[in-house]
Simulated assay, not measured.
Amino acid sequence: MLQRAQVRITRHLEAELLVAHDLPLASYDVLSQLAEAPERRLRMNDLAGRVLLSRSGLTRLIDRLQRDGLVSREACESDARGLFAVLTDAGAARLAEATPTYLRGVRAHFLDVLGPDEIGHVRELVTRLAGATDAS
């Protein structure tokens, strides 16, 4: 049941972002993670962990975002093999345009379905579940 709810919500969010901004949910997630990072940049390995993608899956996604001018790649000075994904100004602008759509979707498909007390309970349960899975 948890998986069905998660899939239903993410499908709605994805559809809304695609229609309004031609931006898949995974791309929104990458742009959002980069926007929150210091200097709008993250090492590719760290970014892959944050967006729950394999390294190869993230590489393909970054290729598309780079082609669209939303992200750039920079070499890591301290590690010749390392690469940073960097949010461009165009990427930040696209994220700013898409964020209201994303937040409306989260509200409509998740928060408005629950009562105020239920939201607190869900937050507590999800935090506990995340901590339990991180420990194992």
Rank of each mutant, 00 (worst) to 15 (best):
R41E: 07
S56P: 13
I9D: 04
D29Q: 09
D46E: 14
G131L: 00
I62C: 01
G105S: 06
V126L: 13
R43Q: 09
R43H: 14
L125T: 08
T127Y: 00
P38C: 05
A92S: 12
A85P: 08
L23F: 10
L13I: 05
A132Y: 03
S27P: 02
T101P: 04
Y28F: 11
L65Y: 05
E39L: 12
R41L: 07
G49S: 12
D63Q: 11
A108E: 06
L58I: 06
G69K: 00
L114K: 10
A35F: 07
H12K: 14
R94S: 05
R128G: 07
V19G: 11
L114Y: 04
Y28G: 03
L95Y: 03
R50I: 06
C76E: 13
L125C: 05
R94T: 08
L47R: 13
T10A: 10
E16S: 11
V126M: 07
D79R: 15
A75W: 08
G91A: 06
G105C: 02
E77G: 13
T127V: 02
V113H: 11
A15R: 14
R73H: 08
T127E: 05
L47F: 09
A135I: 00
R107F: 00
P116I: 00
G115H: 08
S32K: 14
H109R: 09
L18F: 07
A80N: 15
R94D: 00
D89S: 15
A35C: 04
R73M: 13
P100V: 02
D117V: 02
F110W: 00
R11S: 08
R94Y: 02
D29L: 12
D112S: 09
G131Y: 00
R55S: 13
A108G: 03
G57F: 03
A75G: 15
H109N: 12
L25Y: 07
E97D: 11
V106R: 09
D112Q: 10
H12R: 13
V30S: 04
S27V: 00
G115D: 01
A48R: 12
S78G: 15
G115K: 08
S56H: 13
